[in-house]
Amino acid sequence: MSRKIRVLIAKPGLDGHDRGAKVVARALRDAGMEVIYTGLHQTPEMIVETAVQEDVDVIGLSLLSGAHMTLFTDVISLLKEKGMEDVIVVGGGIIPDEDIPKLKKIGVAEIFGPGTLVEDIVSFIEKHVKREDR
């Protein structure tokens, strides 16, 4: 039987704007993925522990609070600590262009800002998740 891509959609930090996250979650569901949605105000520790237990292939972080540098860095270093470097981390929300190269340097695979087509997010994930049976 085929293996399904599992994606964690998480909202780190303190902002309460989850419309974008929900739109993306739904689009990924409609593309045949299993999407774990955790709700607002998740700390990096909570996000990474959820990723461990749910054994996800991808973490999508959505934030509009401006704290992306700190929070993305924390999530990625916690993943490394747990030996989960194979999990793809992508981001979305309000992230200034000049921060994108810095985020990619610390290991964020891609940033999807406002105006991104959900189809592009779906195909990015499908392309980057290794499809072999684990």
Partner: peptide, 30 residues
């Protein structure tokens, strides 16, 4: 979903404060 094969697994939203407890393991399934 019987159409796409995808699923939105959202039960964890109500279980947030259990996440960091090492003796609790939560798994969402479609």
């Amino acid at each position: 979903s019987p159409f796409s094969g995808g699923a939105l697994l959202g039960d964890r939203v109500r279980m947030t404060e259990l996440i960091l407890d090492k003796e609790v393991f939560i798994r969402s399934m479609g």
